[in-house]
Write a protein that binds this DNA or RNA. Structure first.
Lengths: 217, 217
DNA sequence: GTCTATACCGTGATAGAC
DNA sequence: GTCTATCACGGTATAGAC
């Protein structure tokens, strides 16, 4: 097990698996496709990661910690900069979304694939609940708490349903299906996360205010 | 080919395929599972529908026409009842979403599975663009046109990105992953479409207004 | 410790016999 | 319309090379 000192080949396996799982889902990818893509033998994936399911989990977990840290830092940072009332809804949602532009900024395509994989998992009735909760619930509940403070008097159910709407909009964005490209005749692009968040932040912030705060600013 | 006069068994095959594809995706389901679930021989699916991919398409198309008609009727109806300015944003989104409660109303579980299948397809980078566009773009563009009239002066890109956010929220709802159940400690339920739409309509309407109309009512 | 070659055996889709 | 045979491909275990 080389989890501690990852070899170049085991990293390549993770990279290829990440991309293929994101595109075709767990069952749509074979270990042989992954091995071929990584330029290694079929058995190497099993050697490093065990069963196919273990590889899938390894891929899903690999970038989760770093991502959660970036988002938590963004939340803390906007909390530190805000007054005694805490950050407002826009600032909180901004902190939730902007770190996801990491892919564009670093130029690391792996991040783009990883985010698409999150979309696959989050939208799946089979994987969704099991896998998302373990890695992301803690962070999400922190954001919901921050939102609760920004929306005094909000009912619990309203907060959760609003988060659900935000999460859905985000998930479809991360999936990068290319549908908006077609629908808009090329005016919008799935790959343009910046534009997506520029619209998603005011859109969802207004939604939260309307539902949780009677539309008051 | 019994597409014209569907036999009871071929309908059962479609029903089971619909449910399994929705849960596990195209690659996560075998023809044998479908046949077993339907209580028929493995080869009967091929006899009626051809290849596995053709069966998948048959399932996806089966309820699309009826669904589109219901949604178009809802749009026409709210357009007929509205004044010279046409229906407002809430009314249009209501017409877009409420027909999807058909599953609960008819008590036909098949509709629930079908909607989850739409979620799977719409969120998939692989299937998404190809399959959704053909069956749903015409209807979606009609709704976007109606929204444009309700939001005078809206920029094209803003309209499309707002629709994208609505579509994402809807998709995650249709997927029924059970995540909101866990996250909310049981206060909200994935299966409660009514509650989902009750929140989604004001949420997304406020978002459209904020982004496309500077928040004006 | 890292990696490759290969073999095993179950399962898949599909065609053809009935 | 049904049953069965085929054959390729899947995940995985093992043996041994470097």
């Amino acid at each position: 097990m080389s989890r501690k000192t990852p070899s170049p080949k085991s990293e390549r396996i993770l990279d290829v698996a990440e991309e293929l799982f994101a595109q075709r889902g767990y069952d749509g990818v074979t270990l042989r496709q992954i091995a071929t893509g990584a330029g290694v033998d079929v058995a190497l994936a099993s050697y490093h990661f065990g069963k196919k399911l273990d590889l899938f989990n390894a891929v899903f977990q690999r970038r989760a910690v770093e991502l959660n840290e970036a988002r938590l830092n963004a939340l803390r940072s906007c909390q530190d900069q805000s007054g005694p009332d805490g950050p407002d809804v826009e600032q909180i949602i901004e902190a939730f979304l902007r770190p996801l532009e990491i892919a564009q900024e670093t130029g690391d395509q792996g991040w783009t694939h990883y985010l698409a994989l999150i979309a696959y998992v989050n939208n799946s009735p089979y994987w969704g609940q099991k896998m998302m909760s373990k890695l992301f619930d803690k962070l999400v509940l922190e954001f919901i708490e921050a939102l609760r403070r920004a929306l005094p008097g909000a009912r619990d159910e309203d907060l959760y349903w609003c988060y659900h709407n935000l999460s859905g909009a985000l998930t479809l964005t991360l999936a990068q299906t290319g549908r908006i490209d077609k629908l808009s005749g090329g005016k919008c692009q799935s790959s343009d996360f910046r534009a997506a968040y520029d619209h998603m932040i005011p859109f969802t912030a207004a939604g939260f205010r309307e539902v949780c705060n009677g539309g008051k600013r």
